[in-house]
Structures are given as structure tokens and as C-alpha cells.
């Protein structure tokens, strides 16, 4: 009898320790993976470690990072935003066509428009209680149709690139401005999550929505804000892409959806919500970029990239998911 009690007690204590162990694993793995990848690439090609090429690498990761950053907030709420890439494409079309009229104000206008688009999706999600992946899947189709209509299914050249030059230049001739924009976005969102109640509320909703609701949290408002943030960063990512191609196109960013989802989950943010952080998405975007570059160094056909994203997404989700929250996996 006493033995049984001791065993039960021990089991209880072990169960309490599981979250900690999970935390260590999920924290250590992405960072380790990132460093190992970097080291492997450096061995394969020492030239990569020169500042110039590292910065070029970072530059290429910038739009992806921005795109994934806002969507991370939605994932932390326990939802998902599958519309970000289509919205970024739409943003590129809007930006290219608004620059002649608005010049410098075009970028903020596009970001604001995308934030509104995101907020609308959030509103539909909370008001009609439709799962977020359905709403954003519908949004994805809608935004890309709007982009096709607005552009006439063609590339929209930008007559004057000065309003977006700031997003594709090198400060001091060295540091790509896009990298700074990406870092600033991540830091700003992380600060928002750290220093305002929003972060606590997003996490609480992601971890245990019933408890959050009964604690009197403004669930609907928080979710709409999360989707609006996701929309806004999608707009900014679209602007970064326009800055480097000097044009907008209705499918410009579409191929970034899978890498963006991969960046979020590979960083260790669980799609069940709650567990995760903005910096993780930064690491995740780094891993995705290094893998892509690594594959091309290794002489692997770019065609395999998509397979890689598929495997990464399923693998990372399987590792980070909080199964205690899923009694039935749908």
C-alpha cells in the first residue's frame, strides 16, 4: 500500500516535470539545428562565413521573416493564417499601383489596408465561429482573385522606385536595410507581446481558451488584433518584395506560404497555441533559409525544395504539438 502511494507520488512529480523537459527540448532544438546547419555550410563552403555573404543570406531571408512574424501571433492564439502569402501578393500589386498617386504614403497605406483585410478575417472567424483555417483558406482565394483582378493578371511595374528604395538598400554600403526591417518587425512584435497585456492574453487563449474566457479576457478583440497584425506584416512583406523586384505581381509571394508556415513551426511554436515566441520564428526563418541555400550548395535540384518544406512542416509540428490538448485529432 505504502509502495503504491510512493509510486503514485513519484508519477505525479514526473508528470509535473514533463512540461519543463518539453520546454528544454523545444528551446534547444531549433537553435542547435540552426547552428549545426550554419557550421555544416561553413565547412562545405568557407566563403560563406565572410560578412558579405552572411548578410546577403540574411537579406534573402528578410521577406520570409516578416511574413512569418505576424502569422506567429495568430498561431500563438491557437489559430492559423493561411492567407498571408496571398495577401502579400495582393499588397505588392496594390503598392505598385498606388505609388504613382500616393508616393511615400503608399507603403503605410498598403500595410494599413492589409491590416484591415486581416482584421476582417479575424472578425468573420470570431463572429461566425468558423475555424480559422477555413476563413483564411477562403481569404487566400479571395485575396489572390482580387490581386488578379486589380493587376489584370500581369506584372505591375512601378514607375518610380524611390518610395520603396529604403527597403532595398545597404546602410553604410554593407548592412541590407531589409534585414533591419525584419529585425525591427520581430522586435516590435516581441515587445508588444512582452510589455502589454496582449502577450499574456494571446498565450492564455492559445493554452486554454475556456479558462481565458471565464477569466473575463476580451477573446474576440485579442483574436481580431492577432489577425490584423498578421495582415499588416503580410503587407510589409509584400512591400519588401516590391522593393527588390521594382514591380508587383498577383502571385509574387504565393510560394512563400509553405516556407512561412515551416519557419513558424520549425522555430518551435506549437500549432496548438500557447507555446512559442517571436524569436523562434526568427530562428525558424534562419533554418529554412539555410536549408534552402544548403541544398543548392550540395547540388540538389531546386525542385526538391517543396518536398523539404512538406517534410519540415509535418516533422516540426509532430515534435512541437501539445497533444494533451487534442483528445481527438481531426
Amino acid at each position: 500500500m505504502a509502495d503504491a502511494a510512493r509510486v503514485a507520488g513519484l508519477r505525479g512529480r514526473l508528470a509535473a516535470r514533463v512540461p519543463e523537459r518539453r520546454h528544454v527540448v523545444v528551446t534547444a532544438m531549433p537553435v542547435t539545428a540552426f547552428l549545426v546547419l550554419l557550421a555544416a555550410l561553413a565547412v562545405a563552403s568557407p566563403a560563406l562565413l565572410e560578412t558579405g555573404s552572411l548578410l546577403t543570406l540574411a537579406d534573402s531571408a528578410a521577406p520570409l521573416t516578416v511574413l512569418a512574424a505576424g502569422a506567429t501571433v495568430v498561431v500563438l492564439c491557437g489559430g492559423i493564417d493561411l492567407s498571408v502569402a496571398a495577401l502579400a501578393s495582393l499588397a505588392s500589386v496594390l503598392l505598385a499601383s498606388w505609388v504613382p498617386a500616393l508616393s511615400g504614403a503608399a507603403v503605410p497605406a498598403v500595410v494599413a489596408a492589409c491590416a484591415v483585410a486581416g482584421a476582417v478575417q479575424g472578425l468573420v472567424h470570431v463572429a461566425f465561429r468558423i475555424p480559422s483555417f477555413v476563413v483564411t483558406l477562403g481569404g487566400m482565394t479571395l485575396w489572390s482573385a482580387v490581386a488578379l483582378l486589380a493587376s489584370g493578371a500581369a506584372t505591375v511595374p512601378m514607375p518610380d522606385s524611390t518610395p520603396t528604395d529604403w527597403a532595398f538598400t545597404r546602410l553604410g554600403g554593407l548592412v541590407p536595410s531589409a534585414v533591419l526591417v525584419a529585425l525591427a518587425t520581430v522586435v516590435a512584435l516581441a515587445a508588444l507581446m512582452r510589455f502589454t497585456p496582449l502577450g499574456r492574453w494571446v498565450r492564455a487563449i492559445g493554452h486554454a481558451e475556456p479558462a481565458a474566457r471565464l477569466a473575463g479576457l476580451p477573446i474576440a478583440r485579442v483574436k481580431v488584433i492577432a489577425f490584423a497584425l498578421s495582415g499588416a506584416t503580410a503587407g510589409l512583406a509584400g512591400a519588401l518584395l516590391v522593393a527588390r523586384t521594382f514591380s508587383g505581381a498577383p502571385t509574387l509571394a504565393d510560394s512563400l506560404l509553405l516556407p512561412a508556415v515551416a519557419a513558424i513551426v520549425v522555430g518551435g511554436t506549437a500549432i496548438t497555441g500557447g507555446h512559442g515566441a517571436l524569436w523562434r520564428t526568427l530562428v525558424g526563418a534562419g533554418i529554412v533559409t539555410l536549408l534552402r541555400v544548403g541544398l543548392s550548395y550540395a547540388g540538389v535540384d531546386a525542385a526538391y525544395e517543396s518536398i523539404l518544406y512538406g517534410v519540415l512542416i509535418v516533422g516540426a509540428v509532430a515534435l512541437t504539438i501539445d497533444r494533451s490538448k487534442l483528445s481527438i485529432v481531426k
Binding site: I80, F133, L258, V261, I271, Y309, G310, V311, L312, I313, V314, V317, A318, I321, R323, L326, V329, K330
Partner: peptide, 10 residues
């Protein structure tokens, strides 16, 4: 035990 929308996306 991964939700199907994720595995099928992958």
C-alpha cells in the same frame, strides 16, 4: 497525432 490540415498541407 497531427491535425490533418497540417499533414495534408505537408
Amino acid at each position: 497525432k497531427v491535425p490533418s490540415f497540417m499533414t495534408t498541407l505537408g
